[in-house]
Computed example of a mutant assay.
Amino acid sequence: MTIIQPIDTFTDNELIARVLAGEKRLYEQLMRRHNTSLFRLGMSFLNNDMDVEDVMQLTYINAYQHLDQFRQDAAFGTWLKRILINECHQHLKRMKKTASEDLALHQDIPKTRETPVDAMMNKELGKVLENALLSIPEKYRAVFVLREIDQLNVAETSKALDISKVNVKVRQIRAKLMLREHISKFYQNDVVFPFHLIRCDRIVYAVLDKLEIK
């Protein structure tokens, strides 16, 4: 009797191998696995949920088109995060119309409208933490999101942000010092930049359509 292994039990690398072998539709599983963490990271840079969705689509398309170049000595999620950060960087450059590579410049852009994410934030803890996170410089915020919310280790965060392990530790400490003490004690990772099924489906199906994967 042949036992069929459930798709959700495959590792990322196993799914990647099958996608490269021709089972392209399995790329959907990879996207769904990493949607939430990429969305949180994107929000820490852009602070606009619709912009983040666009950047996530570009990230997944870019990753798919270069999937055969993925080196499996690193985690697939870390590789995706580095692509996302680059896409955020390019997005901010387009929006700011400047050659500056300082992503922190986007904090000078005033919010002119309430985003759908703002409207959905009905948990006070999530609101307080998000406001606090968005008040600190991007380089500290990104480390905090990856280490404290997505729970990446120091090495993974170092690779994702392309900074030294020492810098990861220093920025993490400084981020905590910048946030109010009670926030760092009481936050929960499911209330910060929440990622809902409707958004997940929208991003996944948009990418599959653009890649013409049926």
Rank of each mutant, 00 (worst) to 15 (best):
P116D: 08
T59H: 06
L92P: 01
T78K: 05
H182A: 11
M95A: 09
C88R: 03
K210G: 03
E14M: 05
N13H: 14
L20N: 08
Y140H: 15
I4E: 06
A132R: 01
N167F: 01
R94L: 06
R32G: 13
V166C: 04
K159D: 09
R25K: 12
T98R: 11
P137Y: 04
R33A: 03
S44D: 13
Q57E: 14
A155M: 12
I3N: 07
A104L: 03
V168I: 08
E130Q: 13
C200Y: 05
A119Y: 04
K185D: 09
H182E: 15
I109K: 03
K139I: 08
M95R: 14
L208W: 07
A74R: 10
P110R: 00
R199H: 09
L179H: 06
W79K: 06
R141H: 01
Q57R: 15
I173Q: 12
L38R: 02
S158T: 08
F144I: 02
T11H: 09
K127F: 06
E23W: 10
E87N: 14
E148R: 15
S135C: 10
N62G: 06
D190T: 12
V191I: 11
T112C: 01
K169L: 14
F144N: 04
L80E: 06
K123I: 13
D54L: 12
R202N: 14
R40N: 03
N86F: 13
S37C: 09
K176W: 03
R32I: 10
I203L: 07
F186A: 12
H91M: 08
F144G: 03
V128P: 00
F193R: 00
H34S: 04
V168F: 01
N48M: 07
H196K: 10
I61W: 03
L30T: 02
F195E: 05
M121G: 00
F195V: 10
V204F: 06
A175R: 05
I85H: 13
D108N: 09
V52Q: 05
D162E: 14
I173F: 11
I61V: 14
Q57C: 15
E138I: 15
R71F: 10
E114N: 07
T78G: 08
F144V: 03
Q107E: 05
H91L: 05
D51V: 04
R18P: 00
A17I: 02
V55F: 01
R71C: 12
A155V: 15
I183L: 13
D150C: 14
P6Q: 04
K185F: 06
